[in-house]
């Protein structure tokens, strides 16, 4: 994983609650055996019209949302399945951070492992971002803050280890492999 230290972008807002992983990437695109190339199916059934054109109703299709790397979404984003295809699709689509007042556990864990910032804010702060689409935010991973254009900073919680992995591009599998002797000892003891 590449290190992720900061994300600066205007926000695009998806004001809907409970955006599930079937919305983010419908199941019929999960037959791939690769990680790459899922971006064109991100939000597929929402983003395109039946004839394959861009759906003007989909907030991320609006001109002002184009190129935004930060999505602010309604409560309980990423609920549903464990498919890691969801963060893969979002990253490939160009999204680097998702902000909500609640993010589903498995989606959040999958996202952080792929360098997609999945950030939970307090409700009032979240509401402010939902109500003000298009503002420029600066997310600082080391400081665990989101800075607004007026200079205020919203703090967010991020597990110390997840932060360390993001900042340094740590390979978590490597970390586990380094614990090989302890795993051996556990297995001998448990046997």
């Amino acid at each position: 994983m590449k290190p992720v230290t900061e994300v600066r972008s205007r926000t695009a807002v998806l004001p809907f609650e409970n955006i599930d992983t079937d919305r983010i990437i419908p199941a019929r695109f999960l037959t791939t055996t690769e990680r790459a190339g899922l971006g064109r199916h991100a939000f597929n059934d929402w983003r395109y019209t039946d004839d394959g054109g861009d759906n003007p109703e989909f907030p991320l299709n609006r001109a002002e949302a184009r190129g935004c790397a930060i999505v602010v979404a309604g409560r309980n984003f990423g609920c549903g399945s464990s498919r890691e295809h969801a963060p893969w699709a979002l990253l490939d689509y160009g999204i680097e951070a998702v902000i909500s007042s609640e993010i589903a556990d498995i989606f959040r864990s999958n996202s952080l492992k792929n360098g997609l910032l999945a950030i939970v804010l307090a409700e009032a702060e979240h509401r402010e971002l939902i109500e003000n689409p298009g503002i420029e935010l600066a997310i600082d991973v080391a400081a665990r803050t989101i800075t607004l254009p007026d200079g205020r900073a919203f703090a967010f919680a991020l597990d110390g280890f997840a932060r360390h992995c993001l900042l340094n591009g740590v390979d978590q599998l490597g970390f586990l492999l380094d614990a090989g002797a302890e795993i051996d000892a556990y297995e001998q003891h448990a046997a």
């Binding site: 399945s81 464990s82 498919r83 890691e84 498995i106 864990s109 999958n110 492992k113 792929n114 280890f161 978590q172 599998l173 970390f175 586990l176 492999l177 614990a179 090989g180 795993i183 297995e187």
Partner: peptide, 17 residues
């Protein structure tokens, strides 16, 4: 449930963080 990266962790180490 776990994601695919974690599936790799468990295959290789039988463990999860």
């Amino acid at each position: 449930g776990i994601g695919t990266t974690e599936v790799g962790h468990v295959l290789a180490t039988q463990c999860l963080l």
